[in-house]
């Protein structure tokens, strides 16, 4: 392959979007109220739409005549390059909200910066996705504040969600080899600059939500390089069942 690093870089982001989209989709029909059920599935569909753009480009870079579907449905867990955060189970509504907020507070700045990529295709994906990401962060930040600064129970649940998911927030902004190289080439973005903006946003929202920002900087990592938690296998079992059981099946 001519550009292995760009391929991996593209897959990382495709996988983030697909797995988080799949997770959010699990809420379909189970949302706390009808309006939020629709909100979550809307966001899920936004993310799956973004994943499609990334996968289509990845398949093109790969140049083996494969399609977006091959990449989504026919790779095993260790070939997936999503961060560990997005594969974490939905838990209660507070946990889903905080997982979403951690992702959105990364992705809105990520897409903003990626619009300046020297790779025109990536810049175009970023321009389209950025508007969606801005709505997502508005939605999830709003809910973090509502629940954090809400009732005693919602505050407790939000506090638990922050404690549980905090160790998964670091991986997003810590460059792996693929990202470092992409950044050097002007294709990717400067994650250190993003981290500063992202951290400021988290501080701002958690403060408004009357939630304590954990001091620990310990970060689980490995997802970006294919080392996943046990959850991913179960997600893929759901996601890929049809193509595995009935190869080549189409609508």
């Amino acid at each position: 392959m001519k550009n292995q690093n760009l391929f991996h870089y593209t897959l990382q982001h495709a996988d983030n979007c697909l797995i988080l989209g799949q997770r959010l989709g699990e809420w379909c029909g189970h949302g706390p109220i009808l309006e939020q059920d629709i909100a979550m599935t809307n966001i899920s569909l936004d993310l799956i739409g973004q994943a499609r753009m990334w996968y289509q480009y990845a398949a093109e870079i790969q140049g083996e005549g494969k399609t977006e579907d091959d990449l989504a449905y026919l790779r095993d867990a260790w070939d997936y390059r999503n961060v560990l955060l997005v594969e974490q189970p939905n838990g209660d509504f507070a946990k889903t909200i905080f997982r979403q907020f951690l992702f959105d507070s990364y992705s809105c700045y990520f897409y903003e910066a990626l619009m300046n990529s020297s790779d025109e295709h990536l810049a175009a994906i970023a321009a389209k996705s950025h508007k969606e990401a801005l709505y997502h962060i508005k939605w999830s930040a709003d809910w973090v504040v509502r629940l954090g600064d809400g009732t005693e129970e919602s505050h407790e649940r939000m506090t638990a969600a922050v404690a549980e998911l905090w160790p998964y927030s670091g991986e997003l902004t810590k460059a792996n080899k693929t990202e470092a190289e992409a950044s050097k080439d002007g294709i990717g973005i400067d994650l250190q600059a993003l981290k500063e903006r992202r951290d400021a946003k988290i501080r701002e929202v958690l403060t408004e939500a009357a939630l304590t920002i954990p001091e620990s900087t310990y970060a689980h990592e490995g997802g970006k390089d294919g080392r996943h938690t046990e959850h991913l296998g179960y997600i893929l079992a759901d996601l890929q069942f049809l193509q595995r059981a009935y190869p080549g099946l189409e609508w």
Binding site: L34, E35, Q36, I38, A39, N42, K138, W139, D142
Partner: peptide
């Protein structure tokens, strides 16, 4: 209400 209306 505005956000829900936007989504619904």
């Amino acid at each position: 209400a505005i956000q829900n209306a936007r989504d619904v």
